[in-house]
Design a protein around this nucleic acid. Structure first.
Length: 871
DNA sequence: GCGGATCAC
DNA sequence: TATGGTGATCCGC
C-alpha cells in the first residue's frame, strides 16, 4: 500500500517521536497536523499499546546513547584510517556503477481503497479506508487529509474523521485486479518482480532495445471508456473513446496538482519528453523512450482496471523505488542514466525515503546529524566505525545512489507462519487449544506448498504488547498439524510453566515452521524417513486409535478466514474438546512393535548424533535407547523384545558407556523426589500410574498449583540447586532445561522439568487422564513419561522435543558433533571485502548497529521485563 | 540454532 | 471495545 510507504507520516512517529512535517495543506476539509496529533494522542494515551511504545522508544534511546558514547571514544587517528578504507571501497563501488539497465518500479495508487471506490460509486468523493475498526490497510486521499493512514486502527481514524467509511477488505478482488495488472507487466518484462499485490519492479532494458524498431502501430492504443476492458491490445479497435484529457479513474486525487489533470496529457511527466504520446481522436501512440514505455504501461493499466498507478524509472531498483514515490499519485518520474543525474537526485534526498531505512535507523542516523543522503555520504567513515559492515555498506550504496540492477527471482520460501490477535486469553487450556488450531491452519498452508521443515517457532504477545518467540528444531522434518503441535505445545507449556502460577495473558499467538531442507537435504531426509519407517508400515496403520477421532475433529478443519467474532465462537464451541483430549488415548492397543520401533528411530538418531556407533548405517545393528547397550546384529523382533524388557525393568543404571549422561537412574530419581517433597509425590503418582497401570488417586490440583507454583519454593529447591551447582549444573535461576554447564547431569534436571509439566497436565479438567492405560504405551525414554499418542511419528517428534531440552543438543554442540566447525561465515572478514550474502540478496537489511540496547538476560518471568524497563 | 529487532508491504 | 499478518534478515549470543 502506498499509504504505508509514506513513512514519515506514520502517525506513531508523529506521536512518539515528535517529528515529521506537516504535509497537510489544511484545505477546507481535513485537519492540520496539530489537531491530528492531539486527537491521536487522546485516543492513545494511557493504553497498554502506548505503554509499550514508550518502552520501545526508551530502548531505542538507549541504543542511541550507547552509540554516541562509542562515537565519543573514536580518535581522529581511527577516523582517518577508516576514511581511507571506506574511500577505497567507495571507489571500487564507483567503478562498478552500472547505468546500463532501465529499472521501473510500478506502484498502484491507494490500491485497495481505489478498487473499492471503483466498484462502488457511492464511495466516490467520500473519505474511505479499507480495513476494520482495529486496523486499516489503506485509505484514499480524501481520508488522508484527516490524518487517516494505513496501519492506523479504525477507531482512531473515526475520531479523526467521523464520516470515514471503513470498508472491509476483499482480498480476492484485489488479487484479481492485481493479476490483470501483472498481465500487462509481463509484456514489458516477463521476469518482472512482484513485491505485493500493488507493487512490482520491471527491468525494461531489453524491451527498450527491441522497441526501438517497432512500427508505430505496435505502440498504438485505442482509448476506451472508463470501464475496465479486456481488449487493450495494440492497434485493435475498442470501445467508445473517452476524452483523453482526464483521468478515467475514480476521483482519487481531488487534491492533486492541477497540471496533473491538464487537458491533453493525462500523465504526469517530469522532463521535456520529446515524444509525448500522440493522440489522435480515439487512439494514442507511445514513443520508444523509457518514459514513454512507462506511460504506456500506466495507460494500459488504467484502461484495463480503471485504476491509476505511479511509477519510477531509474538505473537501479533502489532509485526506481524512490522515484515512484516522487509524483504519486498517478504520476511518474525518471532519473536519467548518467551519474550526474543520479547524484543530483540523491543530493537532498532524506534517507528515510530509501527502502530499508526505517523509523529506527532514521532516528539513529539523525542522532549523528544525518538526514539526507549527502550527509550520509559525508559521515561514511564514522558510520563504518559505528555500524556493522553490512550496514555501512548499505549506507554507502545509498549515498552513492547505487542499487541492484538485477531482479532476483523469488528464492525458495524460508518460512511459513500463522498468527492471530484476539482479546485476552489467559486460560492455559484455551491457549493450548488455540495453539492447536494455529498448527492446523499452518499445516494446511504447508500442505498446499508441499513444505516440511525442522524448526517450529511460537510467537506470543501478551496484553502489554510484549512479544516473545520460542523455537525448537527437531532432527527430522515435520509438516502435519499433529507433529507441529507436539512441538509447539511443548514450547507453549514451557512458557506457561515459567510464569506459573500467573497465567500468560495473551493477545496474540503465532506458529511458524522454518528450516525447510534444500534439495540435497530433502533427498537425505527422504532416505532417513524411509529407513526409519521401513519395517513399520503396520505400525503406522495402527495409529487410528486417537487420530481417527482427532483427524477429523481437530486437524482437518478448513482454515478459518473469518474475523474475530466467529473465530472465537468457533473456538468456544471447540473448547469442549480440550487439547488433552486430543492426545488422550484411553485404550491403546498392544503395539509393542511400534513402541520399539519408535525407539529404534530414537536409537538411530542418537547413534548418529552421539556418534556412538558405526558409520555403517546397518539397520540391523541396534543400540538400545534405554540401556544404551549395543545389541549387535539381531533381528528386529529380538531387539524390540530387548527394548521392551529394558522398559519394563528398572535396568537403566549401570551402563558403562552412558551412565554419566543417560536418564536419571532410579536412585537419582528417588533422590530428586525426596528433595522435591510434595512435588515429587505427585510426580511419583503419575510415574507409577503408567508403570503399574493404576489410577491416579487424590491428586489435588489446588495443591499442585501451590506447590509447583512457588517461584523459588523453599529451601528444598534451593538445596537441590546447591547440590546441582556443586556439580556445576545449572543454577537455581535456570529452571528450564539449561544444561550448558553439565551435560552429564542434565537428565535429572530435565526430568524435574518434565515432572512439573506433567503435574500441570494433571491439573487439566480430566483428572482421570491416565485412568485406563494399558500396559503398552509409548514412553519417552528421555522424559520417562508416557506419551498420550500412539502415533509413531508424533512420538518421535516428542522425543526430539525432549532431546532438545538441552541434553543431546548440548552434547551435539559441545562434544560430539564432528561437524561442529565454525559456521561458514556469510560475509568476508576483511573489513573492505564485499559482502557475500547467502541465498538471495538481502532485500532490505534492517538496522544493523553494533549497539543494541543493553541486553538483559532473558527472565523466566516476563514481568521482570517490565520491571527493568519501568524501573 | 535462538531470540529480539527492524523493515516492508 | 478496539493498535494486523506474513516473511525476511541481521546481530549477538
Amino acid at each position: 500500500m502506498d499509504s504505508t510507504k509514506e513513512k514519515s507520516d506514520n502517525y506513531k512517529d508523529d506521536l512518539l517521536l515528535r517529528m515529521g512535517l506537516n504535509d497537510n495543506k489544511a484545505g477546507m476539509e481535513g485537519l492540520d497536523k496539530e489537531k491530528i496529533n492531539k486527537i491521536i494522542m487522546e485516543a492513545t494515551k494511557g493504553s497498554r499499546f502506548y505503554g509499550n511504545e514508550l518502552k520501545k522508544e526508551k530502548q531505542i534511546n538507549q541504543r542511541i546513547e550507547n552509540m554516541l558514547q562509542q562515537k565519543a571514544q573514536i580518535t581522529s587517528q581511527q577516523l582517518r584510517k577508516a576514511q581511507l578504507q571506506v574511500d577505497r571501497f567507495a571507489m571500487e563501488l564507483e567503478q562498478s556503477r552500472d547505468l546500463n539497465s532501465t529499472i521501473v518500479h510500478i506502484d498502484m495508487d491507494a490500491f485497495y481503497a481505489a478498487v473499492e471506490m471503483r466498484d462502488n460509486p457511492e464511495l466516490k468523493d467520500k473519505p474511505i479506508a479499507v480495513g476494520s475498526m482495529s486496523m486499516l490497510s489503506t485509505s484514499n486521499y480524501h481520508a488522508r487529509r484527516f490524518g487517516v493512514r494505513a496501519a492506523m486502527p479504525g477507531f482512531i481514524a473515526k475520531r479523526l474523521c467521523p464520516q470515514l467509511i471503513i470498508v472491509p477488505p476483499n482480498f480476492d478482488k484485489y488479487q484479481a485486479v492485481s493479476r490483470e495488472v501483472k498481465e500487462i507487466l509481463t509484456d514489458y518484462d516477463p521476469n518482472f518482480m512482484a513485491m505485493s499485490l500493488d507493487e512490482a519492479y520491471l527491468n525494461i532494458t531489453k524491451h527498450l532495445e527491441e522497441r526501438k524498431n517497432w512500427p508505430e502501430d505496435k505502440r498504438k492504443y485505442f482509448i476506451t471508456a472508463g470501464t475496465s476492458l479486456e481488449n487493450d491490445n495494440p492497434g485493435k479497435e475498442v470501445n467508445k473513446p473517452s476524452e483523453l484529457g482526464r483521468s478515467i479513474s475514480p476521483l482519487l486525487f481531488e487534491d492533486s496538482p492541477p497540471d496533473l489533470q491538464s487537458p491533453g496529457n493525462p500523465f504526469q511527466v517530469n522532463s521535456e519528453e520529446p515524444n509525448n504520446p500522440q493522440t489522435h481522436q480515439n487512439s494514442v501512440v507511445f514513443g520508444t523512450s523509457a518514459e514513454e514505455v512507462v506511460k504506456e504501461i500506466r495507460f494500459r493499466v488504467e484502461q484495463k482496471t480503471a485504476l491509476t498507478a505511479s511509477a519510477g524509472i531509474a538505473p537501479n531498483m533502489m532509485l526506481a523505488k524512490v522515484c515512484s514515490d516522487k509524483n504519486k499519485p498517478n504520476g511518474q518520474y525518471q532519473i536519467l542514466p548518467n551519474r550526474q543525474a543520479v547524484m543530483d537526485f540523491i543530493k537532498d534526498l532524506p534517507i528515510r525515503k530509501v527502502s530499508g531505512i526505517g523509523k529506527v535507523t532514521e532516528k539513529m542516523l539523525k542522532a549523528l546529524g544525518i538526514i539526507t543522503c549527502t550527509e550520509l555520504y559525508q559521515q561514511r567513515a564514522l558510520l563504518s566505525l559505528l555500524f556493522s559492515e553490512t550496514s555501512w555498506h548499505h549506507f554507502l550504496h545509498i549515498s552513492l545512489g547505487l542499487g541492484s540492477t538485477h531482479l532476483a527471482r523469488d528464492g525458495e520460501r524460508k518460512s511459513r507462519s500463522v498468527e492471530r490477535t484476539f482479546s485476552e486469553i489467559s486460560k492455559a487450556e484455551e491457549q493450548y487449544s488455540l495453539c492447536q488450531e494455529l498448527c492446523s491452519e499452518l499445516a494446511q498452508d504447508l500442505q498446499k506448498e508441499g513444505l516440511k521443515g525442522r524448526t517450529v517457532t511460537i510467537k506470543l504477545k501478551n496484553v502489554n504488547f510484549e512479544v516473545k518467540t520460542r523455537a525448537s528444531t527437531v532432527s527430522a522434518v515435520v509438516s502435519t498439524a499433529e507433529e507441529i503441535f507436539v512441538i509447539a505445545k511443548e514450547l507453549l507449556r514451557t512458557e506457561i510453566d515459567a510464569d506459573f502460577p500467573h497465567p500468560l495473558r495473551l493477545r496474540l499467538m503465532g506458529v511458524r515452521l522454518s528450516g525447510f531442507p534444500n534439495e540435497e537435504e530433502k533427498k537425505h531426509q527422504q532416505r532417513s524417513i524411509i529407513g526409519f519407517l521401513q519395517p513399520g508400515n503396520q505400525a503406522l496403520s495402527a495409529t487410528s486409535c486417537i487420530l481417527e477421532k482427532t483427524d477429523k475433529d481437530q486437524f482437518l478443519k478448513p482454515a478459518q478466514t473469518s474475523h474475530k467474532k466467529s473465530f472465537f465462537d468457533k473456538k468456544r464451541s471447540e473448547r469442549k474438546a480440550s487439547p488433552q483430549d486430543t492426545f488422550t488415548c484411553e485404550t491403546v492397543n498392544k503395539q509393542s512393535l511400534q513402541t520399539s520401533q519408535s525407539f529404534q528411530v530414537l536409537n538411530k538418531k542418537m547413534s548418529e548424533n552421539l556418534e556412538v556407533v558405526e558409520k555403517s548405517h546397518n539397520c540391523q545393528t541396534f543400540t538400545c535407547p534405554v540401556c544404551f547397550r549395543e545389541q549387535g546384529s539381531i533381528s528386529l523382533e529380538a531387539f524390540n523384545k530387548h527394548v521392551d524388557a529394558c522398559l519394563d525393568g528398572p535396568s537403566i543404571s549401570g551402563n558403562p558407556k552412558m551412565s554419566s549422561c543417560s536418564h536419571a537412574s532410579s536412585a537419582e530419581v528417588n533422590e530428586k523426589e525426596n528433595v522435591y517433597g510434595s512435588v515429587s509425590l505427585c510426580e511419583k503418582g503419575g510415574y507409577e500410574t503408567h508403570q503399574k497401570n493404576t489410577e491416579i488417586t487424590s491428586v489435588d490440583p489446588v495443591e499442585l498449583v501451590e506447590t509447583t507454583g512457588k517461584p523459588s519454593n523453599t529451601d528444598d529447591i534451593g538445596a537441590l540447586s546447591n547440590k546441582l551447582s556443586e556439580e556445576e549444573c545449572s543454577g537455581p535461576s535456570s529452571k528450564s532445561f539449561n544444561m550448558e554447564h553439565c551435560p552429564q547431569n542434565s537428565c535429572a534436571v530435565s526430568l524435574e522439568n518434565e515432572d512439573v509439566g506433567s503435574l500441570r497436565r494433571q491439573e487439566s479438567p480430566q483428572p482421570n487422564l491416565y485412568e485406563v492405560i494399558s500396559d503398552q504405551v509409548l514412553v519417552c525414554p528421555i522424559c520417562n513419561l508416557e506419551q498420550k499418542t500412539s502415533d509413531l511419528t508424533l512420538f518421535n517428534v516428542h522425543v526430539d522435543v525432549c532431546l532438545n531440552k538441552g541434553i543431546i543438543q548440548e552434547l551435539r554442540k559441545d562434544k560430539i558433533n564432528p561437524c561442529n566447525q565454525p559456521k561458514e561465515s556469510t560475509k568476508s572478514t576483511d573489513n573492505l571485502g564485499k559482502v557475500q550474502k547467502t541465498g538471495n540478496k538481502a532485500k532490505r537489511p534492517g538496522l544493523m548497529t553494533k549497539y543494541s540496547a543493553s541486553k538483559k538476560t532473558r527472565p523466566n518471568n516476563p514481568r521482570h521485563t517490565l520491571d527493568v524497563f519501568f524501573k
